[in-house]
Design a protein around this nucleic acid. Sequence first.
DNA 1: CTGTTAGCGCCTTCAA
DNA 2: TTGAAGGCGCTAACAG
Lengths: 334, 334
Amino acid sequence: MAMRNRITIHDIARHAGVGVGTVSRVLNDHPNVSAETRAAVQKAISELGYRPRSAAKTLRTRKSLAIGFITDYIATTPFAGNVISGAQDVAWQYDHILLLVNTNGDPALEEAAVEMMLSREVEGIIYATMWHRPVTPPKNILETNVALLDCYVEDRSLPSVVPDELRGGYEATARLIQSGHRRIAFINHNIPDPAQVLRAEGYCRALADHDITYDETLVVQRVAEPYGGYEAMGRILRLSKLPSAVFCYNDRMAMGAYDAIKEHGLRIPQDMAVISYDNQELLAANLHPALTTMELPHYGMGRWAAQYLLGGELKPASPPQVLLACPLIERQSV
Amino acid sequence: MAMRNRITIHDIARHAGVGVGTVSRVLNDHPNVSAETRAAVQKAISELGYRPRSAAKTLRTRKSLAIGFITDYIATTPFAGNVISGAQDVAWQYDHILLLVNTNGDPALEEAAVEMMLSREVEGIIYATMWHRPVTPPKNILETNVALLDCYVEDRSLPSVVPDELRGGYEATARLIQSGHRRIAFINHNIPDPAQVLRAEGYCRALADHDITYDETLVVQRVAEPYGGYEAMGRILRLSKLPSAVFCYNDRMAMGAYDAIKEHGLRIPQDMAVISYDNQELLAANLHPALTTMELPHYGMGRWAAQYLLGGELKPASPPQVLLACPLIERQSV
DNA sequence: CTGTTAGCGCCTTCAA
DNA sequence: TTGAAGGCGCTAACAG
């Protein structure tokens, strides 16, 4: 904290008996430096305990070695850490750091955050939502590079990475079919968002591809919480002809479905197989039996977004709309 | 992205017919500027769409308006978002931004992260762990201000904020006693960390304060996972004289305890009251009955750490060791 | 291969 | 209350 004047490249230049240009060159691994000069400079650097001032470099080069990371509701989802971790791992690999701002969905704050990031000359901004949905980012974000994470703009004019919900819904259903099930219920969320629509579409296509007739009485929509899953499963269990398996919109609904199934005296998976979506470790791994589910690729989306921004393959002409696969996590419920 | 030369204070000075010094003054709310001059400058600023280059300011003032945030395992806990959110809210209030690095506990990476932050001249660094424990931060962190979050150094030489586990253990137990329970079991973690030791201490003191004799057969230690809680509760239920309530080390163990209690044919809370620790929403709110538990003050710790760094009350002479209360979240299990 | 020099954009004295 | 000038530390272009 005792901030005596910091050591600069001038100091180390003098100490090593060279010019500042040379010091700058060794600092930046410029090839045109003789081995001995380089060694002398490096010696001086470590002897004097030199530490560069990143602001000076940024001012000169217009590169901040940073990317912005804007989240909407970071505190409300257990997945936030995975997304950040993915972005961070790639950023670090490129010697970049993450500038984080959480906005609680406030548009004014979003715009201010972007402004601050632009002032700091970030390489680009990752605009991340905590659940898959369409968004309208502040327009000033267009003044730098952007990667939308777990979200997209309706007109597809911005690069985006989201989970491949359709394929996930398809594969979850197919997994059930593969185990011999033909009569498969689907407990879905009752609010139409991308996950809700696309998982349903995947469910339908899987049935169709295996010549199973779609039966609307087997599809029940409720609030995407345990009690919603409980209600939905209860309704299904009152059917005269019971299904032998159920695909749940998410692990929370599956949690409720478990209760209903057990109360009904049925065993999982013998009497009722269950597969679901999200892979919330805490739930999925600890339910009895452990829940087989489709994992949301949070870490991967974080990586993709950072990689897109730093990998140098920016093509604003045709912004990529990437779908990341949701891997099947096999446990004991199927 | 078309990065024509940026507009500088020189441009706006010329446009407004004043000197750069004056522009700088209005930018920084310096009092000595006449109202009309100020207005003229502000007009020019908005007309030209001026955006400051933070690097230039930082170079000149040595203030980056940023604080570093180092985490160990951000991806492994659902609480990460709350901590970040707390720090972020305060940082923003002071016009600061968070520079985030997650290290996966790698000491080399930690040191490099600190080095990068020092180069960027952060105001201070929040060193946060995802569970309460003693730590050894990289020594270079001492070259700036530090706030340890959910952790501490053994010699207490660095400011730290952690949950008040002892008081939490005490109050959880007292809550049970208050409901008339006198025979109270305690399911604890089987690895001695601060939470384990201090919650146990709180349990003991609460019993003592209410003239209840400590009965070691009522205290069982296991792995802090649902199956550990299940095992522990099973052991307790085999006792000849059953307790009427149980205090669990965390919500996950409580989850397992629930299973054991129900399998034993007992009702919660009528036959067996349950209280626990952590308030993992996902679990606590969705167990049947909903779980009464002590909340870990993650958001508050985030706020405290940022406030300490930015509030200007730094006193390295006597580094504060703050304990934050764990509020009781009443639900239906007591 | 190396030294010198001219800024990057801003803030902050110092005079006026 | 205001303008002018110097310099924060670094990189990159230019000579040599």
